[in-house]
Design a protein around this nucleic acid. Structure first.
Lengths: 211, 211
DNA sequence: TAGATTGTTAATCGATTAACAATC
DNA sequence: TAGATTGTTAATCGATTAACAATC
């Protein structure tokens, strides 16, 4: 987030910024920002602030954004399509080297210039490209099996879009993105707003303190 | 998450479960689960556990999943397409009532059976359908303007897929999903793994304690 | 009654933030 | 030197979890 905010600052011609400036741009508290940056090193100047380009470079180097990361996407439904075409991945060093799907009907179809291949090609593709990161965009029922196969082939990081809890061995990182839970959380708060406004259709709720 | 885990349990024929069972299914600690449920009420039976269907009903009622939520999606690129087609929304009570885009080239195009309309139709659509939730799937530069217009029309919950920090008034909820930051976090950990394994190409990192 | 499991308390843990000495 | 701002400490806050009395 800080990297992104710094890039935006640089693009608007700003060469130097204070922790307060950057914190506002990133939407966080400035003390938190300074503490976070302190884990990377001491890249600011007291009384002056941070050199935008220099800090950008240091953060980019630290988080490995300079490397090229080959990625496979499994499950080429609507979401898989969108992910394959998502420009934000490519521009941040992620290269989609293969799209896999268990359904033969979509095989050889071109998505974002890449042909969809059978899921059983996973091992060969991971070995060929040195893939470390896999993306799961399958239905929930298929996700654990896909994860198991990914782990068996040596993938150690998984981005899971399927609404399922994955069991993986130690040393494998899983991050989960659940689009409909995000909407549900918003809907819950909407309902609470209606309730607080005295709408009689709203149900009695839990303690606000718990939220 | 608990609701989803309970649904999965119910579908596999399980009628009763302990907090430990449900915690495992949801991927959390059982003490946390019991504490979370305690905010809703006291729906378990000591010595026995929870009735799956009863607890499902209570959670569903509490989070408002029984209601129908009209939603507008702004920005019909790849991601907007995928979101419009995403079956997980419809099945959880979210109804996409309109797709909006500023680009006239995509107007009247049918996506998931819904015609894309001009962004300027926002006010009319929100008023007509009583929309409270908006989804932003535009490029980052357009996001703040879209959010401002949404807020002006009375939308009070925004799901933001654009990589931008949105400024909104108090009382408006924003949730942000940033797909490439998720991948970047995985890539960061991958880099750390390579570093810890002694790969000389890996850069020196921050303290593990900070992660 | 004995065993099991909840609901809740209190302890622990970690993240956030205010405050300020260091220093440009 | 005076003003500004970092880097870091210590306080605060909130979330997680262990432990256990309540009770089925």
């Amino acid at each position: 987030m800080y990297l992104r905010a710094l890039t935006a600052l640089a693009e608007s011609g700003i060469r130097t910024c204070s922790s307060e400036d950057l914190a506002v741009a990133a939407g966080v508290n400035s003390a938190k920002l300074r503490k976070d940056l302190s884990y990377l090193g001491s890249y600011g100047t007291r009384g002056v602030g941070y050199d935008v380009d220099y800090l950008r470079y240091q953060i980019a180097r630290e988080i490995g954004v300079t490397q090229d990361w080959p990625v496979v996407i499994v499950g080429i439904g609507n979401l898989g399509h969108a992910l394959a075409n998502y420009s934000g991945f490519r521009s941040r060093g992620f290269r989609v080297v293969a799209l896999l799907d268990a359904d033969p009907h979509v095989h050889d179809e071109l998505v974002a210039g890449v042909a969809v291949r059978p899921f059983d090609d996973l091992e060969a593709i991971v070995a060929e490209h040195g893939v470390a990161i896999g993306v799961i965009a399958t239905p929930a029922v298929a996700a654990q099996n896909v994860a198991d196969r990914m782990v068996a082939t040596g993938i150690t990081s998984i981005l899971n879009f399927a609404p399922a809890v994955l069991a993986v061995p130690d040393g494998v990182d899983v991050r989960k993105v659940d689009l409909s839970i995000e909407l549900q959380i918003l809907a819950y708060h909407e309902q609470r707003k209606a309730h607080d406004a005295g709408d009689p259709a709203a149900v009695p709720g839990v303690e606000e303190a718990a939220l």
